[in-house]
Design a protein around this nucleic acid. Structure first.
Lengths: 127, 127
DNA sequence: GTTAGAGTTCTACGGAGCGTAGAAAACTGC
DNA sequence: GCAGTTTTCTACGCTCCGTAGAACTCTAAC
């Protein structure tokens, strides 16, 4: 249960970007604006129905990616974990399904930029 | 275009395990045996139709994961890249979609086993 | 306390991906 | 040419995702 659809990802991006919990309405507006900002041909600034956003949020909640405060009346939604955490976890998931973890890591390291290699060295030094 | 279904993954696993190119029939037999080996309740040793295996192989070919020799009459199929390569590429894909790559790497490294951390250090030393 | 409006849940449809395989076509060896 | 093998075509059911109307549930104001 890892992969997200396009809209699901867009919503998560907004939740990850904003530090505060947001309501469905807020998110709908931001979605319209950010898709307009993307501009480009064929992808106009869509105004989604609020129910659409709510459906997506519910699905994300079921997937464990989003938490909602049920107390306040316009429910407020926020990401369960940061994007970095989530992405790192995803990477572990991908890696985890391999019996040859070391070989995978070798290939992975082999195609990392020099700057990131430096970062990794620093991080590994700390252990 | 990254994720695989259950059967697709099973087929890829066989192709990655065997070093030789294999025919659809061979794969069907191996699938039956390996799913039997998995044993367990509710998951008996299924005998798939060959056409099923062929369909899956075609889809994998379209996804660029599998190559087939069309010359020989029972076509022979093999994985385009090793499992390690493929998995590493997947990891890069996951990582690539993040604007905060360094933060992700930090989290990732943070939850790697000590043995693997050592491997990584060694690999990074080489650069 | 009833009601109007905002918010939420239920239900649903269409498209895509995947497991599954029969029917039909193409090929090979005899 | 023909029979058996192999491949392609077509298709169905299922699940996931985008999308949203219909129906229900609150809350605030009267």
């Amino acid at each position: 249960m890892a992969s997200l659809g396009e809209l699901e990802r867009a919503v998560m991006d907004l939740l990850w970007a904003g530090q505060e919990a947001a309501t469905a309405n807020t998110l709908r507006d931001r979605l319209a604006r950010s898709s307009a900002a993307q501009g480009g041909a064929g992808h106009e600034g869509k105004e989604l129905a609020v129910t659409t956003v709510l459906t997506v949020l519910s699905r994300l909640e079921k997937k464990g990616l989003v938490e909602r405060e049920r107390g306040t009346r316009p429910h407020r939604y926020q990401a369960v974990s940061s994007r970095a955490d989530h992405t790192a976890e995803l990477m572990h998931e991908v890696l985890g399904s391999a019996p040859d973890r070391e070989a995978v890591l070798a290939r992975f390291i082999g195609s990392v930029s020099e700057g990131e290699a430096a970062t990794l060295r620093k991080l590994l030094g700390h252990l």
